[in-house]
């Protein structure tokens, strides 16, 4: 598996990562190497084998649908880069 420059740009966009133009060839090489490693999987026939999503083959436990959290807005927003009147601020989204 060999990734080209435009593949890396597309993946970086999907992952919302800004990558320096100059770093793209390095990423293309590294990611291609990792995908080569991963491609060893295709040597094995897995037809009819059920996927294992959870190590104990279990489903996640569900809790009662009741409120468990108390309001800690001020505390939780103390880590936010920019807030105003209890709201998180982002650049203008709607013109």
């Amino acid at each position: 598996m060999s990734l080209e420059k435009q593949d890396v740009e597309k993946i970086a966009h999907l992952a919302r990562l800004a990558i320096d133009e100059s770093a793209i060839p390095g990423y293309a090489e590294d990611l291609s190497g990792i995908l080569d490693l991963v491609d060893q999987m295709s040597a094995v026939d897995t037809d009819g084998i059920e996927p294992l999503a959870h190590p104990h083959d279990a489903n996640q436990r569900l809790r009662e649908d009741v409120v468990t959290e108390e309001n800690q807005r001020e505390l939780l927003q103390s880590n936010a880069p920019q807030t105003d009147a209890g709201l998180f601020l982002v650049p203008k989204v709607i013109e």
């Binding site: 992952a15 995908l35 991963v38 897995t46 996927p51």
Partner: peptide, 28 residues
Amino acid sequence: KRRIMIGAYTLSAGYYDAYYLKAQRLRR
């Protein structure tokens, strides 16, 4: 960044079965 990108790639449309689902079968 490398690992996020590998993940974004293997989960992207058209690749899920060949990578993630395949890996989960091997995991079994």
